[in-house]
Amino acid sequence: MHDLYAFVSGPLVWVAFIIFFGGSIYRLVSMAILAKKKDGVVFEYFNFKYALRSIFHWIIPFASTNWRLHPWMTIVTFAFHIGLIFTPVFLFAHIILIKESWDISWWAMPDGLADILTLVVIASCVFFFVRRQVLPEVKYLTSTSDYVILVLVALPFITGFWTYHQWPESTFMGILHILSGEVMLAVIPFTKLSHMLFFPITRGYMGSEFGGVRQAKDW
C-alpha cells in the first residue's frame, strides 16, 4: 500500500500533469499549425474584442438566448463546471499536498463548501446521465464514450467524497481517488473533455466572424 501510494502520489502525478499540460499544449499548437496551413481564415478574421464579447455572453449564466431557453440545464451546467474546476483547485487537502511538494500554496475554500460543490458535481453528473437517457435529442447524439467520460469525471469526486468522509475502505478509495483524478486530467486533451481547451477558440472564432465581419450578435 505504501509503495502504491507513493507511486500514485508521486511519479503518476508528474505523469498526469505532464500529459495534461503537454497534451494540451500539443493539441493547441498542432491545431494552430493545422489552422495556419489549411484554415488561414481563422487567423485572418480572429478578433479578440469580438471573441471576448461572445465568450462573455456564453460564460455568464442566462446571458445568451439558449441559456435562457434551458434554465435547468443552464443552472446545472454552470454549477457543474464551477464545481469541477474550483473544487480540485481550491481544496485544502490538494493545496497542502502541493505545499508539501513544492512549497507553494493559495487560498483554500472551507471543506464544507468543497463538500457541497462535490455533491453538486456528482449530482450534475447524474443529471447529465439522466438527460442523456431521457431527452430524445440528446439521447440520439449520445454514444458510449459520452457515458465513459461522465464516469471519468464523476469518479474523482465520488472517491474524494468517500475518502474524505472516511467511509469503509477509505484508504483504497483514497488511492482510487488519486488515480481517477490523474486519469481524468490526463485524458482531457485527448477526449471530448478537450472542449475545455477549444471552447475559447471555437466560440471566439464564431464571435469574431459574427462581430467583426457579420456585425451581428451570436448569443
Binding site: M31, L34, A35, T142, K192, F198, Y205
Partner: peptide, 12 residues
Amino acid sequence: ARFKAYVETCVH
C-alpha cells in the same frame, strides 16, 4: 483545423 475542432469539440 475548423473541421477537426468542430467534430472533436462537440460534446453531444
